[in-house]
Nucleic acid binder design. Structure first.
Lengths: 188, 188, 188, 188
DNA sequence: CTCTAAACGAGACGGTACGTCCAGTCTTCGG
DNA sequence: CCGAAGACTGGACGTACCGTCTCGTTTAGAG
């Protein structure tokens, strides 16, 4: 028999677990993802998973974070143009969506009861930053814009993610920004 | 023994099955809804359910339709004012949401793969009707409006339904119409 | 549509049902024989079967009789030699066994509760006839032989049928007659 | 809450499973014995049964063995008389039959395809032992007796078990030994 | 450096539901 | 009334996972 590598523990093990979860997700899709499948892929027992995450959804969310690094809030774009900034944010959302896949989105949404709302706050904060910079640059007169309008682009993109099967196109993003968001922000 | 009622069949049975599904949904919620539970409540076997609907989601959708009657398209409002018409549509959506519950929405979305998109077409048709009437009344200059803007109110309401835990308020609906939709439609 | 032949009835239908049962038996074996399968093969409904036979075993027994014609009692051999007569009876038993198959034997035995015993009486009667003829021919001194010994050959063959997987050989039958039965009958 | 007993495992659990199977057999009979019923009686899940035995028949056989301890081969009688030895063996067989019940015998025979034959070998070995002892005692001249005759008594008892509904009487056993077996063994 | 507590790997356990098959009965319609 | 067709109530099948528990083995870190 080959000399076994040493037994995995702690953070190193955790990383492998999340990789296994991600691989399983890619292999069988969210609806068929099982704790047993992930444990088997990671060559360990279910207890090791349950020690860390209470259920499938928590584990998958952790796997997504593990794969995608920080949130949008950590990479607020600053291109010098409000239009480009907003487009950059929307592109990040769309890209994540492509990476994750729609069934995962729905599955996770269905299994976590709450804490969905935090996403709104994050996006509102990001947009506030973008608008303040635009005011500083003189692009728009004021950043005092209703929260509803502020989160309009991200809300619409989220709606596309949730409802459309096919991945979003660049044209869709441009349309949202040019036909809806900018006219409202520029007022009149 | 009591005189048995005659054995149920066809449409009469089907209605009882859907009632049972709805009752079960109310009793245990979507995540804990099982075919066995529904069959037990309807005092029949699982085969009778599977003969009609291939899976849980299909059955639940049928139950929702059975309970809610026709779609929005069958009851297009006509109040004499574009603002009130659109608000009426949004109120119908919100009311359905309250009736159905969020976990059902997510559960069903997660389990049906496709056919999500048809909802868009329905809503676009409804909105087209409303706008044409508004043009006829002279409220707005033209009904030639981009599809994106046409479905804006319903898209936003749908986003609220999917993402917010609490039921929607009337204020939210008014905000969507007055701050977003009408300014864009009236345009410059 | 093709011109339908007139609907089957009575004995003609019954014969087709039994043929279908036999064909199904050959196709899937007794353990997998189902009333539904037979009904489908005969292109009719289950009720038609249940109207005639109360359960699977009854139907199969009827099918066996239908295929095999009369019982051993109807074809008592008369070769002019006791040894050959008995061998002829055993060969008939063995041949039926080959035709029917062992799993059918066990299946039917398991599902009929009683009336197994009648077989003993039939065989005892047949053997009585054979022995009386042998006495008449002067082969043996007396036909006054214990029932136990009379049914010995058939009992042993039945034991082989029930317990052995492979079909019986001629040698086995000869052994039973020459080593066991004849010595006891000829007595001291 | 009551102090839970620790979860059952391994051999202790297995013994309880087999007891439950036996109890279920006594309660409902073989034809109505179900894996679900046994599992319920043993307060466990079906998987625990299927992990050990692939089907109903295997489980029942294990239950019989569990209840009846070793085979006949482990308790070869030695009374000092061939007649009594053989009778003792037959009585053991008859007793087991009474304990087990006929429907179980048929049910098991119907569901196991093979391995029926091993019973023959066991009995032939036992009888060989008995006969050798008889030769040593000078009861009979030689133990060189055809296998057919050696297994004659057990074959006949088995035939009775399989074909007769009522339990066997002592008289039947005596008849088999005195009228059939001993005359053949003692030869002329 | 030894001892101990915790984590790991493996898998059995008690349990729920799955989706399917079949039994046996009932209903409807056509001949 | 009976045949043909098929739907109904009901029960069990064998499988898949759930989340928990138990076992023996490593491994890190405290004394």
């Amino acid at each position: 028999m080959p000399a076994e590598t040493t037994r995995r523990r702690g953070a190193a093990l955790e990383a492998e677990l999340l990789d296994a979860a991600w691989a399983e997700l890619a292999a069988v899709g969210y609806p068929k993802l099982t704790m047993e499948g992930v444990a088997a892929r990671a060559r360990t027992g279910k207890q090791v998973l349950y020690r860390r995450w209470g259920n499938r959804a928590e584990m998958v969310i952790a796997a997504l974070r593990h794969r995608q690094g920080g949130s949008v809030a950590d990479r607020v774009p600053d291109t010098g143009s409000l239009r480009e900034d907003v487009l950059a944010v929307l592109r990040m959302m769309a890209e994540r969506q492509r990476d994750i896949g729609q069934d995962v989105v729905h599955g996770v949404l269905a299994e976590i009861g709450e804490q969905r709302v935090e996403v709104f706050d994050i996006m509102r904060d990001v947009m506030t930053t973008l608008l303040e910079r635009a005011v500083d640059r003189g692009e728009i007169p004021t950043a005092d814009i209703s929260p509803r309008i502020m989160t309009l682009p991200t809300d619409l993109v989220r709606n596309e993610i949730v409802m459309r099967s096919e991945p979003m196109t660049e044209a869709t993003l441009v349309e949202i920004v040019d036909e809806v968001f900018l006219p409202l922000v520029r007022g009149k």
